[in-house]
């Protein structure tokens, strides 16, 4: 068996002879062997659309966070941010793969060659209007304080949703959520400790943390309004009504800001969903151009 002596040989050997698409991670299908049957009474189109909402939030925030790599204030923090982004990327992969498993691929399949796995087709070959991420995650990082306030808000909302999703009637979604809860608790608490340290720190760190909160709070306006998809899936016992997590999110964020000696900005009035229905700022196409550019330049590349 001398021809199979290295891990890399084995990786190749584990696959067919057509090579792997160069940009994704097709040799490691995240849902390989998982029973992806959709339980009775659940609309696959709705389920896929919902997985895109949750998956795109994670993918876009992961991409934003990686913009700190080589630029974080200290080495340990750079590693921490990369770890948080990696967890989110993992959640995105599972959720996009789940969307693909129920046939929700939008126009991505027309652009991606057949050898590209569904999760990668969804990540690299959807246009901005097909993304379902919220404005909270697509906004630019700003300075480090604003990045940590945004991470705190995004992780708090996501943790509250995932904690409830553990009871979802879709067993795949429930399993992804149960796993995600353990990770998101680390993300939220890490960001919360930074907000405490910055808010209750020097005059300058306090000023920046307050400015970060003031910039992030208006982005919370459309997070608590259900789309039609979420409303139908909530009724079917699959999704979480975002209105249901509002109280918990307000309570957690208020506690952290108050203990950080920061003024809690005025809570914005609930607004109709924007990002969840494909309405985005100009920031998203710019972010996606970086994420998708190379894969789209060389869509048939294999290694």
């Amino acid at each position: 068996m001398a021809h199979e002596e290295t891990v890399y040989d084995a990786l190749g050997n584990a696959q067919d002879d057509h090579g792997h698409w160069a940009f994704g991670t097709g040799f490691d299908e995240p849902l390989a062997g998982v029973d992806t049957t959709v339980p009775e009474g659940i609309g696959p189109a709705d389920l896929g659309a919902y997985c895109l909402m949750l998956g795109d939030d994670a993918l876009v925030l992961a991409q934003r966070l990686t913009q700190w790599i080589t630029a974080a204030p200290e080495l340990e923090e750079e590693v921490a941010i990369a770890n948080v982004a990696l967890d989110l990327l993992g959640q995105a992969r599972l959720l996009l793969a789940r969307a693909g498993s129920v046939g929700v691929l939008g126009r991505s399949r027309e652009k991606a060659t057949d050898s590209i796995p569904d999760e990668d087709a969804l990540a690299y070959f959807r246009d901005p209007d097909e993304f379902r991420s919220t404005g909270l995650v697509e906004a630019p990082n700003g300075d480090f304080a604003r990045t940590m306030v945004r991470l705190l808000a995004a992780a708090t909302v996501r943790l509250a949703v995932f904690a409830r999703l553990r009871e979802s009637r879709d067993p795949v979604l429930a399993a992804i959520a149960a796993k995600g809860v353990n990770e998101l608790a680390y993300h939220r608490d890490h960001a919360a400790r930074w907000v405490l340290r910055l808010g209750d720190g020097t005059d300058e760190s306090h000023r920046r943390a307050q400015a970060g909160a003031d910039a992030v709070w208006p982005l919370l306006d459309d997070l608590f309004t259900a789309t039609d998809v979420e409303a139908r899936l909530t009724a079917a016992g699959v999704a979480v009504d975002p209105a249901e997590v509002r109280e918990e999110v307000v309570s957690v964020l208020t506690e952290v800001l108050e203990r950080a000696t920061l003024r809690v900005p005025e809570w914005p009035a609930d607004a109709a969903p924007r990002g969840r229905t494909g309405e985005h700022t100009a920031e998203l196409p710019e972010l996606l151009a970086t994420l998708q550019g190379l894969a789209r330049q060389h869509p048939a590349a294999t290694w």
């Binding site: 299908e29 849902l31 390989a32 062997g33 998982v34 067993p171 149960a178 796993k179």
Partner: peptide, 9 residues
């Protein structure tokens, strides 16, 4: 056949 199981986490 190497399969992934997600639950329990």
């Amino acid at each position: 056949d190497v399969r992934t199981v997600l639950a329990p986490a």
